[in-house]
Design a protein around this nucleic acid. Structure first.
Lengths: 206, 206
DNA sequence: TCTAGCTTTGACCAAATGGTCAAATGGCGT
DNA sequence: ACGCCATTTGACCATTTGGTCAAAGCTAGA
């Protein structure tokens, strides 16, 4: 019997184009403001074709969010780079900064989703994120107990890291306005990255 | 001739109810996702009445944003509390934290607006905000020159302050999830505030 | 009481929206 | 050459959307 060959190119290419277009439109307009027509047009496909690959707008959105989730987890793993808090925090903040720089649209979608109350990723918050935070909280507490960090509430440190790093994606336009209308260049961004790391490290070091 | 009396109550009460409802709906759904019908319903008025007071959705949104602008400026002024950087920064961070705590919906709308590229407040970014940042940048540079602060790029400090403080409004739901599903109580919030202040102060102090 | 003008509201409309469908197209293995 | 099946697409649909309108209600001053 003729085994169904994956024949990847067509489907994969259309899905890729749609996901890319969706990422841009969702980032710019939010879930509510985005329209499937706009996404299809940006992908260069008729709207009916979009609904062939992604039956509903919500499913398309979920697919976009899954990519972000993967990236989030990858960045999170760099927290475990070392048992030395300075190294671990530097690596984590750096990875988060790079993520915001390299995936600004995805980062904006993520932030918007959180801001709306995470209607699509509550499950992630309840399971993976909660576990990740709880376990890293323990690490931070151990560092504090070992006299390596000031006695801070670990969660507040995470909140500061998340906020500061994501800012470079969510407020990129505001930053550009304050930078003579031009986006941060690579040099400025690298400086922002190292200053963020240094300020936070100095702030929490015992 | 019968002088038009202000007769404030009716108009003012309707406008107030509409603005309050609009703030909530815009914060929850974003500009694109919000509907005038939903706003009118939340205000307990027919939709036609909404359009009597605010001819278009965009005008209503602009009116909501103006309130936020006022609050932003009020908080900004606390930066000038003192010539001592520790006092000025503490006051400013504290004021921003309080703003996020007391006006979470407005803060979320503000963040969403920035994230979308500030389509409605570009003028504010270009004028008031740019001037405010430029002048406070000078103050920070003077503090650095006086050896009171580490040689940081002042803008990055502002970005960190904005991000960290707004986070307590924009990510309130995420924080609640990580706090056994309950929002931060006043005690926890006060601790977050003082830790934010301490971490940043230690981070930038010379 | 009368009336002028502010306010309220149900009914309505054109456009946009998410989504459907069936007919057409394309390509690959036999 | 043929047939199978994935893919493409224009046309279509019900619902929702922002916004309009005209008729009615209300209130204060004369």
């Amino acid at each position: 019997m003729a085994r169904r060959r994956p024949r990847p190119t067509v489907r994969e290419e259309s899905e890729r184009a749609l996901l890319e277009a969706a990422e841009r439109v969702f980032a710019e307009q939010g879930f509510g403001g985005a329209t499937t027509a706009a996404i299809a047009q940006r992908a260069g496909l008729p709207k009916a074709n979009l609904h062939y690959y992604f039956p509903t707008k919500e499913r398309l959105y979920r697919s976009v969010i899954e990519r972000v989730l993967t990236a989030w987890l990858a960045a999170a793993s760099s927290f475990d780079a070392s048992e030395d808090p300075a190294v671990a925090l530097s690596a984590y903040i750096g990875a988060k900064m790079d993520l915001a720089r390299e995936m600004p649209l995805a980062t904006r979608i993520w932030s918007a989703e959180i801001m709306r109350g995470a209607p699509m990723i509550q499950d992630f918050l309840d399971t993976t994120l909660t576990q990740w935070v709880m376990s890293r909280e323990q690490m931070v507490r151990r560092w504090i107990a070992a006299g390596k960090l000031k006695p801070i509430e670990p969660k507040f440190l995470f909140y500061m890291i998340w906020a500061t790093t994501q800012q470079y994606a969510t407020a990129a336009h505001e930053m550009a306005t304050l930078n003579k209308g031009r986006p941060l260049d690579d040099k400025a961004f690298e400086r922002a990255k190292s200053e963020a790391i240094e300020i936070i490290l100095r702030g929490v070091a015992a």
